[in-house]
Write a protein that binds this DNA or RNA. Structure first.
Lengths: 145, 145
DNA sequence: TGTAGAAGCCTGCATATGCAGATATCGTCG
DNA sequence: CGACGATATCTGCATATGCAGGCTTCTACA
């Protein structure tokens, strides 16, 4: 029984997951002095850009299960960086927004984010980074669902 | 104080992490009937390709912390798919290899892996998939360290 | 030979991820 | 108004991820 080439050499999942780990490591290390993980930083940035979003809508935007998002918000709510308040019109949903502390934490952490971004850009070069970003955007678009 | 564009629109981490989640979801669903996650499938494939590897060496190859790999192996050892035996020459290391059951599980799961791979290829097209793989390989190479 | 430093692995802690299933609420249709 | 299906969120379970710190073993050097 032959199965062809060894998966590791052709597998897209292996590549994107390795890249995700490596990139996350870099961002996490740069953000650590500011007390945020890359996940948490991303959530705060999303909430600054679009406050009042529900958990379900934000989860979809983040390509993340709603239960995952629900739990990722826990540490941020505990630290009073994010507020999730019930909606008057629809008792099922919780609408999310940054607190003043959340805005401040995000502002501070932007320094670390820039450092991480620069780290990547320096290693890849502008051209390769552009190619990577485009390929990822394309894949995310076509794999949406 | 101006920080320029909102990170979410320029952030490489956001892209690669979203793509990783989406791709992992696809592979995990296809592999679920065979009782393996995409992480576990990847580890079995690596051990088939290069048996006798140590935890540290495999962790580096997987762009993964050694402690993470150590724990990821736990369920596979518990199910007797992977064997980690001490080395005579160096008492510190554990050398990893597939058991007969591990080989069999990997063989069965290859059907699911192909389905996931085909799913991605159908959605992206051969050209885009090639571009993505190349960009990821390039990034992994330049971000090695 | 004995000891200091390095190397490899592990445990404890915290967060990240998703599925199955439970609960509460909403909207609709009779 | 009441029941039913759809929607939004949450809990329980299992795995995934990495850092700090600890233990054991090896290596090199005095």
């Amino acid at each position: 029984m032959t199965f062809g080439p060894v998966p590791s050499h052709v597998c897209t999942a292996a590549r994107v997951r390795k890249a995700s780990r490596r990139v996350s490591q870099i961002y996490d290390r740069e953000l650590e002095p500011y007390g945020l993980t890359v996940t948490q930083f991303g959530l705060l940035a999303q909430l600054r850009a679009g406050p009042g979003v529900t958990i379900g809508a934000l989860a979809e935007r983040m390509v993340m299960d709603a239960t995952t998002l629900s739990r990722n918000l826990r540490p941020l709510e505990r630290r009073s960086l994010v507020l999730a308040e019930s909606d008057r019109d629809d008792g099922r949903v919780r609408k999310l927004k940054l607190t003043a502390q959340g805005h401040a934490a995000l502002d501070r952490a932007l320094v670390g984010w820039r450092a991480a971004q620069d780290h990547i850009a320096a290693a890849l070069g502008a051209k390769e980074m552009q190619a990577l970003n485009t390929a990822l955007d394309n894949a995310l678009d076509r794999l949406a669902g």
